[in-house]
Write a protein that binds this DNA or RNA. Sequence first.
DNA 1: GTAAATATGTTATAACATAACATTTCAATT
DNA 2: AATTGAAATGTTATGTTATAACATATTTAC
Lengths: 180, 180
Amino acid sequence: MAPSYRYTETSKSSSASTMFPDHEHDHGKCVSSAMQRAEDLCAERSVRLTDIRRQVLELVWQSHNPVGAYDLLDNLHGIGKRAQPPTVYRALEFLMDQGLIHRIESLNAYIGCRDPGEDHAGQFLICRDCGAAAELVDKRIDAAIGQGAKAAGFSVEHPTVELEGVCANCRPEHKGTKHG
Amino acid sequence: MAPSYRYTETSKSSSASTMFPDHEHDHGKCVSSAMQRAEDLCAERSVRLTDIRRQVLELVWQSHNPVGAYDLLDNLHGIGKRAQPPTVYRALEFLMDQGLIHRIESLNAYIGCRDPGEDHAGQFLICRDCGAAAELVDKRIDAAIGQGAKAAGFSVEHPTVELEGVCANCRPEHKGTKHG
DNA sequence: GTAAATATGTTATAACATAACATTTCAATT
DNA sequence: AATTGAAATGTTATGTTATAACATATTTAC
């Protein structure tokens, strides 16, 4: 059984380095499990996952790429007229408060949290080629940061770790062999 | 002799944890040494530290707090009329290319680089109380990040590490004892 | 059913950033 | 010192991201 935080895969074997979902992964399952988790957490906490909030969360989960607030707004279909910015920003604020999404500071964009409920600082690997972002939870990074800050007499409350680079799917040396 | 990257201090002894300058530090020296370093580096590289660029760099160095582009713009005094945004953004781009300043993604703001010439990824400690930011260069953090990324098959090109919290100067337990 | 709290609608504007093209300045050469 | 090509700056307009302030509607607790 794969740990729950892994991306849902079809039949292919998953290497240890598939933090980034491959192109064959069953993304519908990513979405549905994220939505179910959100429903459960909100119920448990007695907070309201309203239509708008649910819709925004689902839009955020449409891909593994961080998405901007105005992109979400464009895809938010109210009954009649277009929604206004505060609508989406309020939903984003709620979802962040509940730990259901993260904000990527270096992109001014938002991405679904892979492990809501766990209170954690997200660490992100952001591919400059395909644009996908994977959330890392690496205790050694946290520990190193904690130590470095402590040596400076600084207490960290909110770390931002966003690592831009190239993911395994997009590295030239892997591209030729990847559906092997 | 203190290492060159330390903040210039007056007569008081510096503890190992003064990554953040204390209130008595001789800030004029921070500015003048940063400016001199910039002049030297630009000369060495045959790039032009023009009036505007020099002025923007000096404004960035007016404090140890990250400063926004429009704040800089407000303080940029051309001969006659107010400068326009592209003026300051172009100067900021130049200064970043030369490694003389860093951009703080989580604040949309800019801060002087404490060690230009060294090609390094900045790691920042940002105090939510006083607003000051200190640049850390911690190899263990870099190493932990490198390892974490590698395990995910990801190659990091541009890390962003911004740690919001409270600096030693602003921690309540130190406030009472700080002028000793 | 009423009140209080929560959520959403609406209007306006703030804050941050860049595209595109015109003009000026610089600095190397003739 | 005139020519010229590159670099820098000026200028106008607009794009992108985000929030303030106040009105209305919906939900929940009593």
